[in-house]
Nucleic acid binder design. Sequence first.
DNA 1: CGAATACTTGAAATTATTCAAGGGCCGTGG
DNA 2: CCACGGCCCTTGAATAATTTCAAGTATTCG
Lengths: 226, 226
Amino acid sequence: MELSVKEVISRCPLFARVKPEHLQPLIDIATVHRLEPDQRVFNQGDPCPGVFIVANGLVRIFKLAPTGKEYVLHLVSPGQTFAEVAAIGGYPCPANAQAIAETTCVLLPTEPFMTILRTQHELCLEIMTGMCAWVRTLVGLLEDITLRDATSRVARMISDLTNTAAGDVQLPAMKKHMASHLNLTSETLSRTLRRLADLGVIESDNQSLRVIDQEQLKSIAVGELM
Amino acid sequence: MELSVKEVISRCPLFARVKPEHLQPLIDIATVHRLEPDQRVFNQGDPCPGVFIVANGLVRIFKLAPTGKEYVLHLVSPGQTFAEVAAIGGYPCPANAQAIAETTCVLLPTEPFMTILRTQHELCLEIMTGMCAWVRTLVGLLEDITLRDATSRVARMISDLTNTAAGDVQLPAMKKHMASHLNLTSETLSRTLRRLADLGVIESDNQSLRVIDQEQLKSIAVGELM
DNA sequence: CGAATACTTGAAATTATTCAAGGGCCGTGG
DNA sequence: CCACGGCCCTTGAATAATTTCAAGTATTCG
């Protein structure tokens, strides 16, 4: 199923409410990029190519420590954008980006995008709203990592996933990447899922989970009991 | 030293580049608030009163866990703003705000502020730039907390403080609040400062620090050796 | 001066990580 | 079709980092 550039952009929440006549300039500057699994999109410190919109596939944005440890900041799924903050703020890329599946992206290159943004007030407001949501997500991540223990974090992640799709949940990425996003090792994630399964809160199949006791899952997620 | 509302707004980086004629509407809606030490400005979940600009004093923005543990997300010093993301995004307050000194704030109330923002493209662009910087800060915090150990984090904090003011550094807030911001207990911060002092990297007076060996401090900050 | 609160320090406890090994899944190539 | 190699995931035991608990000292403010 191939999407047109127009469809990709207009399905992206960040641009969904932009009027068609204001959308056209964006479509005109857009380029399409096909990425192989494991292919790097950019590295930390690179000049920012522009705003990427994921059409399909999956991209991970991650930071690398000198020790080699990596932290997955964002798993970017279809309809979501990445690098928009660096593009708008005029920063170099603050992290590395890598496709972790066969992926197609639409790119709105920095310079022409900024030119449009400087003249399109409506677009500007939409982007700002989107950025507010991103800030909120980041604050949520910080809260999660600083205030909750491993069990709560994992429970919360599962809870969030089931809010989107009920019943059987497919993990969006490899467990090691999910673990990193929660600032855990994959070993700890593995053990935690085991414990939740032993408690009868979830069933943990290989690549998918099923929530058995939503009540208890949520109470674990907010940090009560264990 | 009393500042006028106009001065407070125009000294704030977020509004500094807004042209005087566009500044006036903001001045017109602004209200001034005087806060006693320890006084709450708002609590998590409250409807967002608007954009606060700190004129002088200090405000801490913090999250509270059910366990009672708190995480200091932001120590807001004069010239900085807080609650702007909630105001613009239309969210309730995502955290608690409390003055931790005699503080004066200028408040731009949500509704009129948003009305202005919806018509002032220039202002919108400025705010967006400011929000990019805030995202960057948050990502930096996440990186710090997930990728570095206690010693590196403390070294980095000191290093950042000395970039602003050379030589003798006054800590902007109580050590327990600084510790919380780095996701450490005050005990760990205390011990870490002790260790850095024993290594001859810093001198740790009561409320102020002095950097002795900037080279080594930076190498510890990026995670090399100990 | 006295009380309250912040800070420091030591020892014990805890959480999560690291190290190590085995099992399972998948794609490649015989 | 099956065997092999690679990588991911799981599990256990040991380790390490930070927290917690507890006590004492210092500082500030009334």
